[in-house]
Design a protein around this nucleic acid. Structure first.
Length: 613
RNA sequence: GGACCUGUGGUGCAGCCUGGAGUGCACGCCGCCCUGUCAAGGCGGAGGUCGCGGGUUCAAAUCCCGUCAGGUCCGCCA
């Protein structure tokens, strides 16, 4: 199963005034047809004055055209060729080309536009550095890879829209110019020309707008929404990204997950030609315990093993933390000492006090190695810590991890959260294939804790957001043990990437007040921060729940890419610059005056210049 | 704010560790030859501020410091 198996030209021949056929659609059944094809010169093979082959490319593919005289065209010139489709002579069929059985002969060539030699080859075989690709993105987009990725993304969008529409969702657009919120992730600000000194914010998501739509009686809303966050960029994060944003009234978490799943699975099927199995579920606690993260990559095993009981009364100081978790790395026993040391370093960066490691060796009957029990091959441990272990501890480690000779065992002893998350990080480092590779393993992670950590004032912080509804049966815990309260929040995870998250929202004022109280938010504060939402909720807010997931991430994985820039036409670099346009760039003084803005410091003069015209 | 990697004709690389003339490979480009190629082939040619600045040295693409750009990650992403 490849990701590019869907037809390149589902819309048919796309005949226009200038052409009769697309390049990539011609087949033996077209033999004898007089055709005109338009496109770019992909390659030419000249054989003296009386024979030349031109490979003409458009988005649908490549067709070989045979020129019986001299022709002066160069790579990437835009030309139209009129000729007759004919079968290729015996022995010259090109099975590597969809159009390889035929060629266009008796050609006349019309040059529609000459072109400079491209800065890099328009060919998937040649890989260029990203800065060059982005600077000449219009050339890069001509490459089959980008054509395939962006067209795949278009099919994903279409499938999602169709699924949401089919399920009764109403597409509503929400403002890009929105009110700044006093907290949260950094927003982009837009100065107001009509109100000097005041600013709009570009929305991080349409979260509040869509909840108001529920109050407004839309019942089921969706939108492929552009969201903007002024946070540092990553392989899976751009300033601007697109989410399938949805919200539904009188609905449970299960209802939301069913509707979202439908769209995601349809999108996957549209992209790959294959419908994934129904999406499985896992609790947050399970994900943390077994995979050390709330976004588990289920493409491979390597589950964490809990050794807390076995080491509850240990004499070994390194294992004296409240919890002991272990990770078996198959075949990891061959890792060099320096590689193991770098794992130890990584564990420390991730927050562990240390990382215990054991190479699993064949047991030495004469030595101090312990067997794992009668009838099994005795195994030993090669580790600086081994001599501190009791025989029962050594046996427990070997048995509970399922260790085999040649494995490497890693263990962290710390708080439960740290032990899990550190090993989860190591598991991902050691086991994860590139995100776009291998099977697509979707999973819903449910039952998140309501609160996660404390703020500077010592108040619990909302893990999702303050409007997330706790489980009704956990409400009594708000006063006694808030960190045990589970929320009706859920994430969708694919291959270790968080695709999106959502929740059942609080629609009752009494519960909202209790949550604000737990968070340490006074009613005055709540009024100033969320006033218009709370106000709206006085006028008949239905119970509602929603979700949003990143289309860039979904499309990237479905396209087999590891980076969302590969499914975005005009992405920005990690420092937020656009090599194509030179953005961001200083504003002329006159524009600043009009906006009532005065800048501080000299304008940066280190921007990359746009390419020469 | 931090860590690591990268920067060499238009493109992708090697050269750097161990300093000795811009030395090499592939693609592209330009010219010539070539009638069945398809990553065509053959011959010839042009093309360089080794990211930038400073330092060490008789001598720096190479070593050191700084800086800029790009990437991956940490922080950040209610």
């Amino acid at each position: 199963m490849t990701t590019n198996s869907a037809p390149a030209d589902p819309a048919g021949n796309q005949t226009t005034a200038l052409r009769t056929h697309l390049c990539g659609v011609l087949r033996a059944t077209d033999e004898g047809a007089r055709v005109t094809v338009c496109g770019w010169v992909a390659r030419r093979r000249e054989h003296g004055e009386h024979l030349a082959f031109l490979d003409l490319r458009d988005h649908s593919g490549v067709i070989q055209c045979v020129i019986d005289n001299k022709v002066d065209v160069r790579s990437e010139w835009v030309i139209a060729i009129t000729g007759t489709v004919r079968r290729r002579p015996a022995g010259t069929v090109n099975p590597g080309l969809a159009t390889g059985e035929v060629e266009v002969g008796e050609c006349t060539v019309e040059v529609l536009n000459e072109a400079d030699a491209p800065p890099f080859s328009v060919d998937d075989r040649d890989e260029s550095d990203e800065p060059v690709r982005l600077r000449y993105r219009y050339v890069d987009l001509r490459r089959p890879r980008m054509q395939r990725n962006l067209r795949l993304r278009a099919r994903v969008n279409a499938a999602i829209r169709s699924a949401m529409d089919r399920q009764g969702f109403c597409e509503v657009e929400t403002p890009l110019l929105w009110a700044p919120t006093p907290e949260g992730s950094r927003e982009f600000s837009v100065p107001s020309r009509l109100h000097h000194g005041s600013f709009y914010a570009l929305p991080q998501s349409p979260q509040l707008a869509k909840q108001l739509l529920m109050v407004g009686g839309f019942d089921r809303y969706y939108q492929i929404a552009r969201c903007l966050r002024d946070e540092d960029l990553r392989a899976d994060r751009q300033f601007e990204f697109s989410q399938l944003d949805m919200e539904m009234s009188f609905a449970s978490q299960d209802d939301v997950m069913a509707c979202v799943s439908e769209g995601v699975l349809d999108a996957a099927e549209a992209a790959t030609g294959e419908r994934p199995p129904p999406i499985t579920r896992m609790t947050w606690a399970d994900a943390l315990n077994r995979f050390g993260t709330d976004k588990p990559d289920l493409r491979f095993e390597m589950e964490l093993v809990d050794l807390s009981t076995e080491f509850a009364h240990t004499e070994v100081r390194a294992f004296s933390g409240s919890h002991v978790k272990a990770l078996r790395v198959p075949e990891g026993g061959s890792f060099s000492r320096s590689r193991i040391d770098s794992l130890v370093e990584q564990a420390k960066r991730a927050g562990a006090a240390g990382l215990a490691w054991f190479r699993v060796t064949a047991g030495d009957a004469a030595g101090d190695a312990a067997g794992t029990g009668a009838g099994t091959q005795p195994l030993g441990l090669d580790s600086p810590l081994d001599r501190f272990l009791s025989e029962t501890e050594r046996a427990a480690v070997l048995e509970k991890t399922g260790a085999k000779e040649g494995d490497l065992l890693l263990a962290v002893s710390d708080t439960h959260r740290i032990a899990c998350s550190v090993l989860g990080t190591l598991r991902a480092t050691l086991g994860s294939p590139p995100v776009g590779q291998g099977p697509h393993h979707y999973v819903w992670v449910v039952d998140f804790p309501m609160f996660d950590g404390v703020d500077a004032a010592g108040n619990p912080q909302a893990a999702h957001h303050p409007f997330t509804m706790p489980y009704a049966e956990d409400l009594p815990l708000l006063d006694t043990d808030p960190f045990a309260v589970r929320s009706q929040a859920y994430d969708l995870v694919l291959n270790g990437w968080e695709l999106g998250s959502g929740s059942v929202r609080i629609h009752r004022r009494d519960i909202q007040s209790r949550i604000f109280a737990t968070l340490g938010i006074t009613s005055e504060e709540a009024e100033s921060r969320f006033g218009f939402l709370l106000n709206a909720f006085r006028y008949g807010a239905p119970p509602h729940a929603g979700f949003a997931y990143g289309i860039d991430r979904l499309a990237a994985i479905l396209a087999g890419e590891e980076n969302i820039r590969e499914v975005i036409a005009y992405p920005k670099t990690q420092s937020g610059a656009d090599p194509l346009t030179g953005a961001p760039s200083p504003l002329p003084a006159r524009a600043l005056v009009e906006l009532g803005i005065r800048t501080v410091g000299p304008p940066p003069d280190t921007r990359p210049a746009p390419p020469p015209t």
